[in-house]
């Protein structure tokens, strides 16, 4: 069936893999295989002989796929990163979304573009979720540090919590620094002194 593409998705997280698979099959009738990013990847890919390989940029296994782009690699057919190296915009969009695609040379761009568009859209969602998670994690850590700094000030100066917080905030404003950074400096200094 000429329109059917064999797509390999390298993804460890099964929930993510399912979501991406759904987006890809929405974009056309494709055979989507999911491989986890563990060792033995090159051999599994060679066996499946795909038209397109999609991999998360954050996945260290991406370097294994580099082998496939070389003439001496384990695939029968040469593989290029993206259909057309001149399609800079599509490539840039993919890299920014955090996905990398390896496409068999000679595959028509109009057949691959919908696949890549679907993958890019889906990866964008993941990247947003990832950065939101990171922001939440950092906020939590900062709160912990600020709490510790407040505790140190309260003990050292015999003041209440609100007053300790006001002191920290004033110091941060005076020095043009982030509250969390001032708190961190205080915690570090007090660890050194104790």
């Amino acid at each position: 069936m000429p329109d059917r593409l064999t797509i390999i998705l390298v993804e460890e997280d099964t929930a993510r893999a399912d979501a991406i698979r759904a987006s890809l099959t929405d974009s056309g009738q494709h055979d989507v295989h999911v491989l986890t990013g563990e060792s033995g990847l090159a051999r599994s890919i060679a066996e499946l002989n795909p038209d397109v390989v999609l991999v998360d940029l954050a996945n260290p296994s991406r370097d294994v796929l580099e082998e496939l782009t070389l003439a001496s690699g384990p695939l029968d057919r040469p593989v290029a990163m993206f259909v057309d190296k001149s399609d800079d915009r599509l490539m840039r969009a993919a890299i920014e979304a955090g996905v990398s695609a390896y496409v068999v040379d000679g595959l028509r761009p109009d057949r691959v573009k919908p696949v890549l568009d679907a993958a890019i859209a889906r990866f964008h969602v993941f990247q947003r979720m990832r950065s939101e998670l990171e922001t939440t994690r950092r906020a939590l850590e900062e709160r912990k540090i600020i709490d510790r700094a407040k505790g140190i000030l309260m003990r050292a100066r015999g003041i209440g919590e609100d007053e300790a917080y006001a002191l920290l905030r004033k110091a941060a404003m005076d020095q043009g620094k982030k509250l969390a950074d001032v708190a961190q400096a205080l915690v570090t200094a007090s660890e050194l002194l104790s």
Partner: peptide, 13 residues
């Protein structure tokens, strides 16, 4: 960076 290819591509792009 998680991989050499990603580092290279980020630099190139």
């Amino acid at each position: 960076s998680p991989s050499w290819s990603t580092l290279r591509d980020k630099l190139t792009l």
